[in-house]
Simulated assay, not measured.
Amino acid sequence: MLNEWEMVNASDNKDNYFMGSKSMKIISLFFFMLAGILVANDVDEGLQAYGENNFQKASMIWERSCKQGDTSSCNYLGDLYRSGKGVEYQSYLMAIELYNKSCNRDNPKGCFMLAQMYKDGLGVKQDILKSVENFSKSCELGYSASCRKLGEIYQNGYSGLEKNYNNAISYYEKSCQDGELDSCNNLAFMYYNGEGVQVDKKKAKCFYGKACGNGANQYACDTYKVLDSLDY
């Protein structure tokens, strides 16, 4: 049995333990947030240097930030290696390595760029299935441009991959809802011409209206007006 004094000490020790544990969590959270702020500053500093055409400085900043785990910096550094700006030599292989690192950490832009490299056969043997795999991951992570790319691949067929209009429409619809005007335009075209679907001028008008984007696509705006004047 603990006497009263021992019980008080035990209670104090317990409180001190929990207070110490809580303090350590607060300190850890502080340094985690600080690290995030510093990395964000690195990204912005790199973008500023890039905007000033100081590509070498941008590459140094993004290389440091990428090593610290910032996937956006890995993407930007990959872009520099892909273009050969600010680095010792152009290297598609280095670009792929950086995009792959980013994609493995679920950065959708990294997956998008990796898919593009496989689609175009830059630094790797052209592989449309690998491209579709990475576009799909990027699309699932919410990157609408990847959904549009998948729609284009399935609408037109590509490098041995057969056309699949159902898949094309599904991906176009997803990206159109997310504001990809080209996807809206492609959907309108498919419904207007009955490509993979029955001709539906009302749906075509609807999607041309979305593709118009307040004048961003003049053809879509004009076609919408024509269909509207015909009471579709």
Rank of each mutant, 00 (worst) to 15 (best):
Y219M: 13
C139P: 06
Q90N: 09
S65M: 05
I153M: 11
S159T: 10
S73K: 10
R64P: 00
G110D: 05
G179P: 07
Q126C: 06
A115P: 04
E45L: 02
R105A: 14
G179N: 01
Y50C: 09
D15W: 09
D15V: 08
L150W: 03
K25D: 11
V39W: 07
R105S: 14
S183K: 11
G110N: 06
S72P: 00
R82E: 11
F31R: 04
G123M: 15
S144V: 13
Y89M: 13
Q198N: 15
S229T: 01
M19A: 14
Y92H: 07
C66Y: 11
K149P: 00
S138G: 14
L161W: 01
S183D: 09
L29A: 15
L150V: 03
A188N: 06
R82L: 07
Q126D: 03
G78H: 10
Q56W: 00
N53P: 01
A211M: 06
S138Y: 00
Y219R: 06
R64N: 12
F30T: 14
D200T: 08
N164R: 08
Y224V: 01
C221I: 02
M113A: 15
N53R: 10
L141H: 02
Q198G: 13
M24P: 00
K202W: 06
Y172L: 07
K210L: 07
E180V: 05
K205N: 05
I26W: 00
S23H: 11
I26K: 07
A216H: 09
M60K: 12
S11N: 13
I128S: 15
L77N: 01
R82P: 04
D79Y: 10
